[in-house]
Design a protein around this nucleic acid. Structure first.
Length: 246
DNA sequence: AAAACCGACAACCGCCCCGTC
DNA sequence: AGACGGGGCGGTTGTCGGTTT
């Protein structure tokens, strides 16, 4: 079977997203949702592959994305779950509200794995801090991380089943260690405007010229009827927090 | 001061799963 | 039942900024 490519290879832009592209994508999805990723860029006025749009939205532009350093609690969860699940980044991300699989994967490769390897070499005992606990691991070999932790997976499971969309407070994270937007309540705390939060480096520009973007003739209505009710049911905070821009 | 090196992270690629027809 | 298409996932690569030589 010959699969059709997800997008035409020619004529589509690759590489880093520009502020203008981000604005267009956010404007379109906010209004119409992602009814079809493959078709979406055409209607949004973007010369991008649908997959690229999806990735950009899912990892950086959608609401409730948490940007910033990982807390020790989060790192413990990542290490713990990686020990159990392996490289199931999406599953791990599901236990860390606001974190994306891509971000967790990157963090693992750049920090945690190295961190644990170092500790394996340097020490054998004193499982006190996260780094020290890492020293108890047997031979790493990239996978075999045996890390005792106060946070059991059972605890994680129960915390996530209590609430379908657990807030940071549900997990007792010290949110002061990093900027965070994890719930509609947090949106409200931010003076009613998620995008004004300075930590979202790539978002402030969206707010600045959003009216202008919304008038962009390149952004078209979708051909198919869109069930906006379904969309906003899925993302209940959208209407309240995004529509203020219009 | 400039080149080389390195780390962090954004983004791409290709495969797989699953729903639909 | 199987072909097809969309979306999701994980591995990998590219790029950029900081550091070292």
């Amino acid at each position: 079977m010959v699969r059709t490519p997800c997008c035409e290879k020619s004529g589509l832009k690759k590489g880093s997203w520009t502020p203008e592209e981000d604005k267009k994508l956010v404007a379109y999805i906010t209004r119409y949702g992602h009814w079809n990723w493959r078709e979406l860029p055409k209607f949004a006025g973007l010369s991008r592959c649908g997959k690229s749009c999806r990735l950009r939205w899912m990892n950086y532009l959608r609401p409730n994305i948490k940007i910033g350093n990982f807390s020790k609690e989060e790192e413990e969860i990542i290490i713990n779950m990686h020990q159990t699940l392996g490289n199931k980044w999406a599953s791990i991300a599901a236990k860390l509200p606001g974190r994306t699989d891509n971000e967790i994967k990157n963090h693992w490769h750049t920090n945690l794995r190295k961190h644990l390897k170092q500790n394996l070499k340097s020490s054998e005992s004193k499982p006190d801090t996260l780094s020290e606990r890492g020293s108890e691991c047997k031979a790493d070999s990239e996978q075999e991380l045996e890390l005792p932790s106060a946070l059991s997976l059972q605890t994680l499971e129960s915390s996530s089943t209590l609430s379908p969309v657990p807030s940071l407070s549900d997990l007792s994270f010290s949110s002061t260690e990093y900027s965070t937007v994890s719930s509609p309540e947090k949106f409200a705390e931010l003076n009613g405007d998620f995008w004004t939060e300075p930590y979202v480096a790539g978002n402030s520009y969206i707010q600045e010229n959003f009216q202008q973007t919304w008038g962009d003739p390149e952004i078209q209505f979708p051909l198919y009827p869109l069930l906006l009710e379904d969309y906003f049911f899925t993302y209940p905070s959208y209407e309240d927090n995004y529509m203020e821009w219009f």
